[in-house]
């Protein structure tokens, strides 16, 4: 009996320390819901506007309750650029390959810089620090990438030049410093493991949150990039275009057409549903990548929650 009370009390005590008070929980939850709504509402509006008819926008302006729904904008997008499907696949391919490359380059460098005993550590910290601030500029990079390295009009032009970043390397380094204790590596070394094996089999698995974080950043960066395509892919190599570039040039074209109605076939000036098409473009480019977010999220959401602490 008394023992029962004891364990009960103990459990209560634990609960007291692991969980915030219910009132606090409500307050925090409310705060998060509030923030989530502030962030969700505009995005939701994008979706609704993209599904509204152009006429409804004209009359009511942006509204969550359009007078008339229409798929016109999406139809226009599909119709305008027959290579949009191909571009979609390109973007996925570039994003996956690029993210993998990026993870390899940043994690190896980050790991090297995180080892306190690495003799060249200081040199290489400066080595990656300088390019973070100074760059040779567009023309110099263009000359190297397009002419010396021959990347022009290849998929590699959209992958390699942006696969590494000092910012990511340094974040990686900091993660490794705090989460990979030296002792683990030392003991592995005593067991006779080579550094590369230690890195792949021991360091990476315990650094999944870091890998997921940088992987997420890389994925988004690749998905959203269109500058590389603009400069390194010729205008008539349609089959290499990534999605973002197709959308951006379509957008430019719409504004160009509506500015220069003289050059247009009579009767077409008003047929471009420009406002809704713009929003539809956002939907097309955001939805796929937003769907990938929960996949990454599960790795950097802490396992240290109430349930996780064993009793």
């Amino acid at each position: 009996m008394s023992e029962n009370v004891k364990t009960k009390k103990k459990a209560e005590a634990k609960l007291k320390y692991t969980k915030v008070k219910p009132g606090t929980n409500v307050a925090i939850s409310a705060l998060f819901i509030f923030l989530a709504l502030i962030c969700l509402m505009p995005a939701l509006l994008v979706l609704v506007v993209s599904l509204s008819s152009e006429n409804s926008i004209r009359i009511k302006g942006y509204s969550y309750v359009p007078t008339e729904l229409s798929l016109e904008a999406f139809r226009y997008l599909l119709h305008q650029s027959s290579y949009i499907g191909r571009a979609f696949l390109n973007s996925i391919g570039i994003t996956i390959v690029g993210t993998l490359f990026g993870l390899i380059t940043t994690s190896t460098m980050g790991f090297a810089l995180s080892r306190p005993n690495y003799r060249l550590r200081k040199f290489f910290t400066w080595f990656i620090f300088i390019p973070m601030l100074f760059s040779g500029g567009l023309v110099a990079s263009y000359m190297i990438n397009a002419h010396i390295l021959g990347l022009k009009d290849t998929y590699w032009a959209m992958i390699i030049p942006i696969c590494c970043s000092s910012f990511y390397c340094i974040i990686m380094r900091t993660f490794f410093q705090t989460t990979v204790p030296d002792a683990i590596i030392e003991s592995a070394k005593i067991d006779g493991a080579r550094m590369i094996r230690i890195f792949v089999q021991i360091v990476l698995p315990i650094s999944l949150p870091a890998i997921a974080t940088i992987g997420l950043f890389l994925t988004f960066a690749y998905w959203n990039d269109w500058l590389m395509a603009k400069y390194y892919i010729s205008g008539n190599k349609h089959d290499l275009f990534p999605l973002q570039y197709v959308l951006i040039s379509l957008e430019e074209n719409i504004s160009f057409l509506s500015r220069n109605s003289q050059n247009m076939t009579p009767g077409t000036a008003n047929s471009i549903p420009s406002e809704t098409v713009r929003m539809a473009m956002v939907v097309v480019s955001v939805v796929p990548i937003a769907c990938s977010y929960p996949f990454f999220q599960k790795y950097f959401v802490s396992g240290l929650t109430i349930g996780a602490v064993k009793g």
Partner: peptide
């Protein structure tokens, strides 16, 4: 001008 090329350029 302007990039990209018309689809049927080739």
């Amino acid at each position: 001008g302007n990039s990209p090329a018309p689809k049927d350029n080739d």
